[in-house]
Design a protein around this nucleic acid. Structure first.
Ligand SMILES: [Zn+2]
Ligand SMILES: [Zn+2]
Length: 849
DNA sequence: AGCACGCCGACT
DNA sequence: GTCGGCGTGCTC
């Protein structure tokens, strides 16, 4: 009954196979390592709990491995290791220890090697991965992977695949054998032929080779048996750490309003991570995982407080605050009110207490200017995590963070996982930005992860925005976040006047130009006065909508209330369909609201606007700035420089001109059309329109001139645009809140979207229908309040990367219950689920494409 | 007989 | 995510 597998024979342990041994990279790293992971005592438990780096449902759990003698007392939670797994070796992460194995001792196999001398993840991050698993319905290992530095990751991301195949005979002989085999073993022949053709003495990666020869692994096995090829394993290596630091810089004085905000923030910062919060109660740190198996005696990261005497390798040192109420704040500050100075002070305060901080900024705002601001204050204690860095740079930076050398981290979304040792503060600037949502698995939102991580580590969170997301402001009103208002701009500069131009009147008057008469007139004035004009255009949506030119009407889905998009089918038929559900209808010939006949597709590109502008202002220097133009490296900066130097009269652009921090102000901003934003097929459309337009409006104003904003629209009476005209965030919030409450959208309900994808359409369609049925049944079974599931429907992007895609949306009032029912539905489907059809689950979806 | 392929379960 | 084992059905 024992299937013992002696490691040696047949298995071909090639000499080049050696992985980093325990000795690898000894001395220099250890000092830093100790400083970095202060709370981890050496561990003497004989069994390590390891999660292997394989993203598959049935191995997504802890496996026990023997701690080999050379690692005893050195191995820590968070270490990356190589372990034997079935017939091969895989990478994995140590997530805990146990005094006794969960399997009979003879089945225990030893850890083969340490991959990196420093524990790559902190115990707190491993707790966070558990939280993500529950919150985003992803695999535990997917959450862990999202946290790993590039290069430490195994599998496909690593520089070299594991298995390589090379010829054991010379290419000429291989070709001869291939010819012999061509008749009865065509696959083997193809493999030999491909190897002979490659000419590389080292051979080819097995995965690549098999794909090229369209063969399965048994083909290589057969050739190996015949002694014509050799199979061997090769592993990538990690490199070494970075240097030390020194501080810099003085702080400017605060305005009275900033000072008031600071007075509320400062006590919380003083309590951060100390566990002496007045509210410290008995709440366990991470919400205990449902279905969390493993021997009760085992120790893992994030052992709930109150468990038996902490064993070695246990989680965060008494997860700070002992589970105190989250110390989280929303700084709602209008543009130019000095939020950044508040962040900088807060960071300085935690640094002074020997703690670290993470500051998230949207990718688009991670400019040299932004970085300079942090460096001016904190010198080389600042680490910047940037997507444009090479893997080697990223890894070096990451090490400096992990060892505590650089306690201030500035970066975009994924910087939320920076392994800062004693985390005291997380700042999420522009918290409403949708770029904080990751659009691939694990589909997390960095703001939500920030709040969870801060809770686990006892850190303070500061969310900042001039136009907070409805979700966040709702929490602030509910008292979950401390609401701190900065309503005055530094220097008391007034906000620009906003004027709405009714494009229906233009239509009626027979003016079919992109520019209204009013906008043209103002442009002319400003240009004559030698001033600059900014024209803003919403990025063209993925699809267009039908818009009535006479009254501004747009078709909406009767179930979901989002705009229907307009399509011409291959057959020539026209349809309008919902991005959320299965609803579709024939476009009406006349407008259902006004009866007019001007119901046409609506959409505008930057090129069109540029053409029109050139025609109307032949003498003006006009520059377009959109994704096409800025694709060239440096184009972005070059255009800004030209604009700042006054060498451009009219700048035409999309989102990016609104979001850069460093664009010089102009006296006239023209929004060519607010309607693309206003009619996005998205339940957040009003919030997003407001945010976008407020941000664009923020570009207006130069010197003492507050500037002027003109917004063209077919819906000038729309309350969302009225709110923009009044710069009234609260009005927008009330409006959007009411709409979402009505329909059970966040924050008044929760959404989960599932995409079913596969190479063939019929099985995908069938699987999606099964999913919808099982999901509906699970919600009913659990009696989830307000639970509903749409019928399966083709996703708005029905074909993507060679796959057919269908989707299903579920909605319910209670988030945890909805997730639980979703888990149950997915589990119930597992038995006969086709292997080549995959399900992508998106909790709190932003994009429905 | 030998080979290829698809389907399943196991991996500590 | 891969591997081996097994059953099926094909070709020389
Ligand atoms: Zn719908
Ligand atoms: Zn109409």
């Amino acid at each position: 009954m024992t299937r013992k597998r002696p490691a040696g024979p047949g298995g071909g342990e090639a000499p080049g196979t050696a992985v980093d041994g325990p000795e690898a990279g000894g001395a220099p790293v250890r000092d830093g390592g100790e400083a970095a992971a202060p709370a981890q005592p050496p561990c003497r438990d004989p069994v390590a709990e390891v999660v292997v780096d394989i993203a598959a449902q049935d191995v997504d759990r802890v496996f026990h491995f023997l701690v080999p003698p050379e690692l005893a007392g050195r191995l820590q939670v968070g270490h990356r290791v190589t372990v034997p797994f079935g017939p091969r070796r895989v990478e994995g992460t140590v997530v805990g220890f146990a005094p006794v194995p969960e399997v009979p001792p003879e089945r225990l196999r030893p850890i083969l090697a340490l991959r990196d001398p420093i524990p790559v993840l902190t115990p707190a991050l491993i707790d966070l991965a558990r939280w993500m698993e529950e919150r985003y319905l992803c695999l535990f290992v997917q959450a862990l992977r999202a946290m790993l530095p590039p290069g430490a990751r195994g599998d496909r991301v690593s520089p070299a695949p594991r298995r390589w195949v090379r010829l054991a005979v010379d290419p000429a002989e291989a070709r001869a054998r291939a010819r012999e085999l061509a008749g009865r073993a065509p696959r083997q022949a193809a493999v030999l032929e491909r190897l002979a053709r490659s000419g590389a003495a080292g051979g080819l990666p097995q995965a690549f080779l098999l794909q090229q020869a369209a063969a399965g692994p048994e083909v290589v096995k057969a050739l190996e048996r015949k002694g014509w090829v050799v199979v061997e394993e090769r592993l990538p290596v990690l490199d070494e750490p970075a240097a030390a630091a020194e501080p810099a810089g003085p702080p400017p004085p605060l305005t009275p309003e900033q000072a008031a905000v600071w007075r509320k923030l400062e006590p919380a910062l003083r309590a951060a991570g100390s566990g002496d919060d007045p509210g410290a109660g008995g709440t366990a740190p991470g919400r205990p995982q449902e279905g969390d198996q493993g021997s009760p005696a085992s120790t893992r990261a994030g052992e709930p407080a109150g468990a038996p005497p902490p064993r070695c390798g246990a989680g965060v040192p008494a997860p700070a605050g002992g589970g105190a109420a989250p110390q989280a704040f929303l700084v709602h500050g209008v543009t130019g009110s000095g939020k950044t100075e508040i962040y900088l002070r807060a960071i300085a305060a935690v640094l002074a207490r020997g703690q670290g901080a993470i500051c998230l900024v949207p990718e688009i705002a991670l400019t040299p200017q932004t970085v300079a601001r942090f460096r001016a204050r904190f010198g080389n204690r600042v680490a910047v995590l940037h997507s444009a860095m090479t893997p080697a740079q990223r890894l070096a930076t990451w090490r400096a963070i992990r060892t505590g050398t650089k306690p201030v981290v500035v970066g975009a979304r994924s910087a939320i996982f920076a392994p800062v040792p004693r985390l005291g503060l997380i700042v999420v600037d522009e918290e409403h930005e949708t770029s904080y949502k990751q659009e691939e698995t694990p589909r997390y939102h960095a703001r939500e992860v920030a709040l969870a991580r801060a809770r686990l580590e006892g850190a303070v969170v500061i969310l900042g925005s001039a136009t907070p997301s409805v979700e966040t402001y709702h929490r602030a009103l509910a008292g979950e976040l401390g609401l701190l208002e900065l309503s005055r701009r530094v220097g008391e500069r007034p906000l620009p006047a906003v004027e709405l131009v009714d494009m229906r009147e233009e239509f009626e008057a027979g003016h079919r130009s992109i520019f209204s008469r009013r906008l043209l007139e103002l442009m002319r004035q400003r240009l004559e006065a030698g001033q600059q004009v900014l024209l803003f255009l919403n990025r063209r949506g993925y699809h267009t909508v039908l818009l009535c030119r006479e009254c501004g009407f747009v078709l909406r889905c009767p179930h979901c209330d989002v705009s229907l998009t307009f399509h011409q089918l291959a057959s020539g038929r026209l349809v309008c369909r919902c991005h959320y559900c299965e609803h579709r209808q024939v476009p009406p010939a006349t407008c259902p609201r006004c009866g007019g006949v001007a119901l046409h597709p609506f959409g505008l590109g930057t090129q069109k606007v540029e053409e029109a502008a050139r025609q109307l202002f032949p003498g003006a220097r006009i520059q377009r700035m959109d994704a096409d133009v800025t694709a060239r490296r440096g184009a972005h900066e070059a255009i800004y420089r030209q604009f700042a130097a006054g060498r451009i009269d009219i700048l035409i652009g999309t989102q990016m001109i609104a979001k850069g921090w460093d664009v010089p102000g102009v006296t006239l901003v023209g929004v060519v059309s607010a309607d693309t934003a206003l009619h996005m097929p998205d339940f957040r459309r009003q919030e997003r329109t407001f945010q976008l337009l407020e941000q664009v409006a923020g570009r207006a104003g130069r010197g003492s001139d507050p500037g002027q904003v003109v917004i063209q629209t077919y819906s000038p009476d729309h309350p969302c645009l009225q709110a923009v005209a009044d710069h009234d965030y609260r009005a927008l919030f009330d409006l959007e809140s009411a709409a979402r409450r009505e329909l059970g959208f966040p924050p008044f309900g929760h959404l989960i979207r599932a995409v079913v994808a596969g190479a063939e359409r019929p099985p995908v369609e069938r699987a999606a229908a099964r999913l919808a049925a099982a999901w509906r049944a699970a919600l009913a079974e659990a009696g989830v309040e307000g639970g509903s599931v749409t019928p399966a429907a083709p996703a708005p992007i029905e074909r993507l990367r060679g796959r057919w895609r269908w989707h299903v949306l579920a909605r319910a009032a209670d988030g945890p219950a909805l997730r639980e029912a979703t888990r149950a539905a997915l589990a119930s489907l597992r038995p006969h689920w086709p292997r080549d059809v995959l399900v992508q689950v998106d909790v709190d979806p932003y994009s429905m494409l």
